[in-house]
């Protein structure tokens, strides 16, 4: 980290919002998928987004690095407005790591190459340095011995841990998780969640769409509940689970917790 980066990080440590949604609206054709989203996330905050399928939670998360375009309102990430300016988008994407439901590792590259691709081509890191960093992160997700294999040779849980390491290799300021455990077998969910908990403890800003309520309870600073394109309720996990304000939240929680 350079000195200026360090200074910026310290400056932001206080109350400064790193992600801001102001009156964000989005439509898929006629379908109003995000309705007046107003929300801000502070640096270092861990946000868990939950809600029924089709509620817009993935879409909202994907607006943060502009994998989806919003049509009305403004989204500020790290003080930069996400609009059609390609330079801004590419700059923000360098600083925002993303983990997908289906891992989306590149099957034609080895695990190591998957991790070094973006540092080498986007950050222009020398190859050797990028590989050292990649091995460091692979060790952190406890998978360094698989570095020379291809994604197709790994289990789902291993692939998702690689995907997290791949995101971290860009040394992002924000990590987005879009249902990271939904495509995994039950016994593999834990190994992925363990890595995410560890990451949260280190103070990474995280936005995580998930149905893992246990994870939300232990890790989240705030839990956001969405339904029909709106943020219904956002609260600290303790309040959210024990004392939900809206009947819609209560119904959702009763369905998801009592099965």
């Amino acid at each position: 980290m350079t000195d200026t980066n360090m200074a910026r990080a310290q400056l932001a440590q206080g109350e400064e919002a790193i992600i801001e949604f102001n009156d964000v609206n989005k439509w898929y054709g006629d379908f109003h998928v995000l309705k007046n989203i107003n929300f801000s996330i502070k640096k270092g905050e861990r946000i868990v987004v939950c809600g029924p399928s089709g509620s817009g939670k993935s879409t909202m998360t994907r607006c943060i690095n502009r994998l989806e375009e919003h049509q009305k309102g403004t989204i500020l990430v790290d003080g930069v407005e996400m609009n059609n300016n390609l330079k801004n988008i590419e700059a923000i994407r360098k600083d925002v790591g993303m983990v997908f439901q289906h891992f989306n590792l590149f099957p034609h590259l080895t695990i190591l190459e998957n991790l070094t691709l973006a540092p080498i081509w986007v950050r222009k890191t020398p190859k050797k340095e990028a590989e050292e960093m990649a091995m460091h992160y692979l060790e952190r997700v406890k998978i360094a011995n698989q570095a020379l294999k291809y994604p197709g040779q790994l289990s789902g849980g291993q692939q998702q841990r690689v995907a997290i390491a791949r995101g971290l290799c860009m040394q992002p300021r924000i990590m987005l998780f879009d249902e990271p455990t939904s495509a995994l077998d039950p016994e593999m969910i834990k190994e992925v969640l363990d890595v995410m908990v560890q990451l949260a403890e280190e103070g990474m800003t995280m936005v995580c769409v998930t149905h893992e309520m246990g994870f939300a309870k232990t890790v989240a600073d705030r839990v956001v509940f969405m339904d029909a394109g709106e943020i219904v309720e956002a609260n600290e996990p303790h309040e959210f689970f024990d004392n939900p304000q809206h009947d819609r939240t209560q119904m959702f929680l009763s369905q998801i917790l009592n099965h």
Partner: peptide, 20 residues
């Protein structure tokens, strides 16, 4: 997902086409 993963990393259009 492959296009999205490449985009999300900040690769440019030509980089993501040629490399991914």
């Amino acid at each position: 997902g492959q296009y999205e993963a490449a985009d999300a990393m900040g690769l440019t259009y030509w980089q993501s086409m040629i490399l991914v």
